[in-house]
């Protein structure tokens, strides 16, 4: 072994301190806490949709919540898992959750092709509010997840960026979802897809720079 390598090894050994191994459950806990905080913020500042407050929520609310949470959890788990690299570790289960979530915009597009463009159902003013609040929630959740991921060693920062972006967008939209009173497929297909899409793109652009090692 060369003298330089020997000296490097000595330096690294001198610097050794015990470490707690990184577990994906840590990243999931960060995402869960921030999602609950975002839900609490929405409930406190904006309120909860009427039918949910009365304990008789519309079936579309459950469908939408389930799909957003499933997408958020699957992608957050895949992102958290990337903190611990290993050849043969690829986790692709999140793709199925993404395909399922894609059913909302695809159904909206198909329905509007059959029934004509549903301009009234799109409600741009309420939609922009949805995008803004979901986006702010996504920012907080994505920020926490990124900070946690920085401790790990993701070998594909680009993929990690997509995953963090999709996870935080879906969980952020799930938080706003407890306020949003609209149930029609056109509104959901557009205004609950956009935050996930925008967040995914922002994640892909911003996160890799922050987690590269």
């Amino acid at each position: 072994m060369s003298e330089v390598a020997n000296s490097l090894i000595n330096d690294l050994v001198d610097d050794l301190a015990p470490v707690r191994t990184l577990k994906p459950s840590g990243g999931m806990a960060v995402a869960a806490i921030l999602t609950i905080a975002a839900c609490s913020g929405v409930a406190f500042f904006m309120g909860v949709r009427g039918d949910l407050a009365m304990g008789m929520a519309h079936e579309m609310f459950f469908l939408r919540s389930g799909v957003l949470l499933m997408l958020g959890i699957a992608t957050a788990f895949a992102a958290a898992n990337m903190a611990r690299p290993g050849v043969g570790n690829l986790n692709r289960g999140w793709i199925w959750a993404l395909v399922t979530a894609g059913l909302f915009p695809l159904t909206a597009i198909a329905m509007s092709m059959v029934n004509g463009a549903p301009i009234e159902a799109l409600r741009p003013a309420e939609g922009m509010k949805c995008l803004t609040i979901s986006g702010l929630s996504a920012l907080a959740i994505g920020g926490g997840l990124t900070a946690w991921l920085r401790q790990g060693a993701p070998t594909s920062p680009e993929r990690a960026g997509w995953l963090v972006g999709i996870a935080s967008g879906a969980l952020g939209a799930a938080a706003y979802n407890i306020y949003c009173p609209f149930n029609d497929i056109y509104y959901i297909g557009l205004w609950f897809t956009l935050p996930v899409l925008v967040s995914a793109i922002v994640g892909r652009i911003v996160v890799p720079r922050l987690i590269r090692w």
Partner: peptide, 11 residues
């Protein structure tokens, strides 16, 4: 080796 050291918690 430096990466191994810095990222040892990820094992």
């Amino acid at each position: 080796l430096i990466s191994l050291h810095r990222k040892r918690a990820s094992y």
